[in-house]
Structures are given as structure tokens and as C-alpha cells.
Design a protein around this nucleic acid. Structure first.
Length: 417
RNA sequence: GGAGGGGUGGCAGAGCGGUCAAAUGCAACGGACUGUAAAUCCGUCGACUUUCGUCUACGAUGGUUCGAAUCCAUCCCCCUCCA
């Protein structure tokens, strides 16, 4: 096993966060030196506010930053207010739609909330700081920018960057606007270097090109070595990106997804993913991870519960995680309905089954509910519903609840009032 | 500015006057098997009512026709090449 001098890189390697580094030895030396002298190294993670919450796919670099902080270093979280106005061409075939000012402002707030779940912000020497690149880009002078920064970039080189090259190869259009994206991100890095002494950028593997853009600019323009460090893109055993549940993204912010659903996402993870997820999505010590990931067959469910609980705890807090877990145990193991299940309300006069499932949001239309009934996919208090015209009334209350289920995994409560 | 190509359901992508609610693939969902896993098999996959049926939908608006996603006109948007 490779051994690094710095605690941070050792952890990254051991937990499966390590994908690629611009200069492994140099970065290791730098970090080890900081750690030894008790001076925090400064590293940043950038994210464009193209949505109003991050989802599990974004957690990987966030967790890296979390460990970075735990190792005594100082994380910066950059919100790409400016870069979101451009659109990162990496991995995209099309120009992104422009976002309105209101949407951007709303998204920035959402992003900040997401960040705060994973890092400790404040004024202390290794507390995290939030910055927005719109602050330095909004008043930038185009001519100066071109002369200062543009001279450091060779178009020949830019054309070889993957984000650009793949577009050209697939004969997809790329606007000049997007072409400039890497200059902005490169410039960000250097601004943070000058303002905060930031020498490291941490991100997902898809950001490699943009990171290199920054390290090269740092060397050319400021004669400073910057480090880039990326995580692998986390995929499931089928090779698909993780982070979708029931066709929807698994959001970090609670207003986008209840803790119970968040918990269930991890509870339902594939066997093959358990070890990987324990390393990446939880803070559990490695001895514990190693113990859990070797569990087989039914026992692996215990590992999944711990994974789900620990992951939910980080993102939603311990109380929420406990409530979610309790509800899951009640619902799935004891067969009675837990309190944290999604609920819908209906009239005391009685509610048609089709409407009840609509109200819970389990089905998008009555037609869909009918189909599911034909397929024996809907249940009322664990009994398969066969009559689509059935009216649910108070006589259906069992154990104090009316439990509605779709398939085996989606459960909800109906409250009559 | 000139020439050409294109805009179809969550995505990809057929259809090119009726038999089109629209092939096929992916995704998604339900069932069987299981462990709230994976793989596999079966089924479903616009809306309303389910029995017939009705309505909305193939960039937008008009038109031709008994009948249009399919033809025509105008407009909007996208792409490629040339200048």
C-alpha cells in the first residue's frame, strides 16, 4: 500500500477518494509540511449554482473537503455566480440555458445551505469560508483580463482539452462563451491564491481540465505551483452515475427531499456498493468499515442500515437520521407504519383510493393508479387493493393509521379529517 | 448576407397524407424470485373515463384536404458550410 507523508492524502487513498493529482509528491510534501507546522493549508471546491441544491453526486468532493478540514486545513467553498453565467462545457453537448438573476440568487442560497452541512464555517484559523466568484468577475475589465490572463493561454493547447476536443469531435457546437469557461475557472484559482493563499483545488474527475487550467495559469502568471486533486466519479456496478432514486435526484437540502427518503436511498444501495459508500459517505473509522463491508447475504443489510444512518446523520443531523431509521424499521421490519412516512390528508367523508394515491404523490395520474391496481401494485394496510372505486373511510384505520403502499418500498399515511 | 440540414413523447431516435397516442432502444414503474440487494423473467409506460369512447400531443400560427406528425405559407429557434 502506498504511504503518504500527509495525513490527508493517506485518508484520501484509503477511503477511495483518490483519483488523480497534478503533482502527487509535491502536494504530499506541502500538506505534510503544513500539518507538521500546524499551519492550515488552504484548498477550495467550486460549484456553479445551476441548481438550488447539491445532490449525492456532489457529496464526494464535499466529503473530501470535510476530511481536509478534519486534518486541520482550511476549506474554501466557491460559489460560481460568475461561471454559472457562462456554463461549464465539460461533459455537455449543448449550451446551457441562461438563468435569470432571481434563479441565480435563489440557487446561490441553496448551495450555501448544502455546503454548510458538511463543513464548519466561521472565523477560526481552519474554519471554512464561502466565496462567490461573481465578486471579482462582475467589474472586471475585459481588456485587462485579456492582456493579463489571455496571454497565458494558448488556443492550440485549449483545443486539446477534453471538454473542448470532445465537443469538436462529436461535431457539437461550442460557443466562444463556453470556450472561455476554463479561463474563468483558472483565474478563480489564482484569485484565491492571492487573497487566501489557496494552493489546492479539490473536485470531481470531470473538472480535471478546468483544474489544470488553473494550475498552469498559476505557474505562468504568478510563478507559483498550485495543486489539483480529483475524486473518481462514483458509479454503481452497472457503471451508471449514482444519485438517482425513483427517477429523481437525491438532494442534500431538506426542502428538496425528506430525511426518510434520503435514508432510504442509502438503505437500498446495491450490495457491491456498500464498502465504497461506507468509505465515502460516512465518517466511520476504517476498522469499522472493513468489518462491515465483508458481511454477506442477509447480514449485509446491517451494514446498509449503518451506512444509511451515518450518511443521513452527516447531511440531516442525528435527530433526523434517527427518526428516519425508526420509521424504516417500523415500516419494513415490524410492518406497522412509522411516523416519518409521507402523509396526505383527506376528508372524513371518505376518499377514493385513486385520489388518495394521487394526494400522496405516488402516482401522477388516476390512469397510473388504475394500472397499478391491475398489476396488484397498490396496498391498503398491506392488503392488495382490487377495487379501484373503493372509498377509504375511518373504518380502515388500523393501529391508529391508514397505511397506503405502492410496490414494496413506497409507503405513506392517509389522515382523515 | 448566401447555400443546405433540422426542430417528434423523460432522453436517444424512426415515421414523411389515413391502419399514428406515434416503431425501436434506454430510463422509469408494477409483479414473480429474494435480503427494502443484484441478475433474470413477465407486464406497464399521454390525460379523462374504462365498456364503447372522448380530449390533448409531433417548434408556433394559419391554410389545403373527408382526413396532416406527415403537404403549403408565414414566423420562431438550432446546426453545418461559404462570405
Amino acid at each position: 500500500m502506498t504511504s503518504f507523508k500527509s495525513e490527508f492524502l493517506n485518508i484520501m487513498h484509503e477511503r477511495g477518494f483518490y483519483n488523480q493529482c497534478t503533482n502527487e509528491e509535491g502536494f504530499d510534501e506541502y500538506l505534510a509540511d503544513c500539518e507538521k507546522r500546524g499551519i492550515p493549508a488552504v484548498g477550495y471546491l467550486g460549484s456553479d449554482p445551476t441548481g438550488d441544491s447539491l445532490h449525492v453526486g456532489h457529496i464526494v468532493p464535499l466529503m473530501m473537503l470535510r476530511w481536509f478540514q478534519k486534518c486541520g486545513h482550511k476549506p474554501l467553498t466557491l460559489v460560481g455566480g460568475a461561471t454559472a453565467r457562462i456554463g461549464d462545457p465539460s461533459g455537455k453537448d449543448k449550451l446551457r440555458p441562461f438563468l435569470s438573476e432571481e434563479t441565480l440568487a435563489h440557487n446561490v442560497e441553496g448551495l450555501k445551505k448544502s455546503f454548510m452541512k458538511f463543513l464548519r464555517f466561521g472565523e477560526g484559523k481552519n474554519d471554512a469560508l464561502m466565496v462567490d466568484n461573481y465578486d471579482w468577475f462582475k467589474n472586471i475589465n475585459y481588456l485587462e483580463f485579456l492582456r493579463d490572463i489571455g496571454t497565458c493561454y494558448s488556443v492550440n493547447r485549449m483545443l486539446t482539452m477534453d471538454s473542448v476536443k470532445s465537443r469538436l469531435e462529436r461535431e457539437q457546437p461550442m460557443s466562444f462563451l463556453e470556450f472561455n469557461y476554463m479561463l474563468l475557472q483558472g483565474y478563480d484559482f489564482c484569485v484565491l491564491l492571492q487573497k487566501y493563499g489557496c494552493r489546492a483545488q479539490i473536485a470531481g474527475a470531470d473538472q480535471w481540465g478546468n483544474i489544470v487550467s488553473g494550475t498552469e495559469l498559476g505557474r505562468r502568471r504568478y510563478d507559483m505551483e498550485l495543486f489539483g486533486f480529483t475524486s473518481p466519479i462514483i458509479t454503481d456496478s452497472a457503471g451508471k452515475k449514482m444519485g438517482k432514486s425513483e427517477g429523481n435526484a437525491v438532494w442534500i437540502n431538506e426542502d428538496k427531499l425528506p430525511a426518510y427518503n434520503y435514508y432510504q436511498y442509502f438503505r437500498n444501495i446495491g450490495d457491491a456498493e456498500v464498502g465504497k459508500c461506507l468509505r465515502i459517505f460516512t465518517d466511520l473509522p476504517m476498522e469499522e468499515v472493513r468489518r462491515l463491508e465483508v458481511l454477506q447475504d442477509k447480514e449485509i443489510n446491517e451494514a446498509k442500515k449503518i451506512l444509511a444512518f451515518e450518511a443521513t446523520k452527516i447531511c440531516r443531523g442525528e435527530a433526523e437520521a434517527k427518526a428516519a431509521q425508526e420509521t424504516a424499521i417500523q415500516t419494513f421490519e415490524k410492518g406497522i407504519a412509522g411516523d416519518d412516512l409521507p402523509t396526505a390528508t383527506g376528508s372524513k367523508e371518505g376518499v377514493g383510493v385513486l385520489d388518495a394515491f394521487m394526494a400522496l404523490g405516488f402516482v401522477a395520474s388516476k390512469g397510473e393508479a388504475r394500472r397499478l391496481i391491475k398489476q396488484a401494485g397498490l396496498k391498503l394496510n398491506d392488503k392488495v387493493i382490487t377495487d379501484e372505486n373503493y372509498i377509504i373511510t375511518e373504518t380502515d384505520i388500523e393501529n391508529g393509521n391508514i397505511k397506503l403502499s405502492q410496490g414494496k418500498k413506497k409507503h405513506g399515511l392517509l389522515i382523515l379529517r
